[in-house]
Amino acid sequence: MTVTGEDADVDADPLEPPLVAPLRRDLTWERVQAMTQSAGHRDDAALRRIRATAAVRRGTRMTKVLSTAQLAGHLAGWLPYGFCYRSCDIAHLRDPAELALLRTDNTGDAPAAYALRWRAVDPSDYEIPMGEVQAGLSALPAHSRIGPMVLGTGFTPSTDDLIPEFVTAGFADLPLPANAQLLAYPGTGEEVVLYTYQPEQHGWLRLAGPRWRHLLDGLPGVSPDREYVPCTDAGSARLVGRINEHEYQAVADPPEEFRVRALTRAARYPVTTLCRRAEQARWRTILCWVLQRDDNWARLRLVNPDADMVAAVGARCYERGVYEVWAPLRELADHHVAELPYEL
């Protein structure tokens, strides 16, 4: 949702504040649109004020548009990471061709568009790629990136829409909250919920009925007839909560419920503290997330990629803004488990 005018007053979901642009004679809609599409305005004070109105709050619905390969990956246990959008900012986009422009990889076209939707656990999990935040992305040459260039204005490249974009903080994997959904947009103007995430079982429950089962045909490694799909990937990040002096693996169900992960409902006690844990290390002085490792090798993702870092470690771009590389485990420095606390 975009609101224009100095004193605009609308009834909006408090978890999804609208993007507000205070239009004046000297700041027209066309002028704002042009500013969002020009890297020269990445430090413009007026544009920063407009961009700041599109805030993420605890419980804000977030969406990442997926290719068929990415959809299959999330069914296997991939976590949310990289570029994403507030669901309210792209709710008007239902056509697969329009949504394809927001995809983060360059895989071929599909007759339907797919997406992952979840609720934000905390605003600190997201960054606005604007100004000095992830500044290296906008300077990456075309041959070493995937997808549209990052403008550095906090908006995605578009000639028609103002779409605020976000990245997960440092391109981190984020633990998947309860009731996340995998969606399809078949081109009829409808939104179809294909699967919903079951955190205690760490798997996906199929909700798509016979009418929409064809949307699952042809997905790599996905059987349309399976009602429940267990995740085989454990993920590189997890939530940990405490009750008194005891520590438990936790589940987030934003905006209000944060509980012990337990199969029996009676044991799902609310936690009193909550944090996100994930492995970090430095390789050749460059800070990275450790996504997976064995006895000899580690798969790394750059936290703040720029052209020099990408060249120094030979990282490969797997999707827009996401650069990963395999490194010898013995060469990692400052290898540790990072703990990022949330305020409850």
Results as ranks from 00 to 15, higher is better:
T2H: 07
D7S: 12
P22I: 02
D26E: 14
W29C: 04
Q33A: 13
G40M: 09
H41N: 11
D43R: 15
A46K: 04
R51M: 04
R51I: 02
T60D: 09
R61I: 00
M62P: 07
K64V: 09
V65G: 03
A69G: 08
A69K: 10
G73A: 13
L79C: 04
P96N: 05
A97P: 02
E98L: 12
A100T: 11
T107P: 00
G108R: 15
D109I: 11
D109A: 15
P111H: 12
A115H: 10
W118A: 01
R119I: 00
P123I: 08
D125F: 00
E132P: 07
G136V: 09
S138Q: 13
H143L: 08
R145P: 01
V150H: 09
V150M: 13
L151D: 10
G152D: 10
T156N: 02
S158I: 01
F166A: 04
F171I: 08
D173P: 06
D173Y: 05
L176A: 02
Y185V: 03
Y185M: 04
P186A: 09
G187S: 07
T188K: 07
G189R: 01
V192R: 03
Q198N: 15
E200F: 10
H202Y: 07
A208R: 05
R213F: 01
D217V: 06
P220T: 08
G221K: 11
S223P: 01
D225Y: 11
Y228L: 08
Y228A: 09
A237S: 15
R242N: 12
D253C: 12
L263C: 04
V271A: 12
W283S: 00
R284S: 10
R301P: 01
M309G: 15
A327D: 01
A327F: 00
R330C: 04
E339G: 03
Y342V: 07
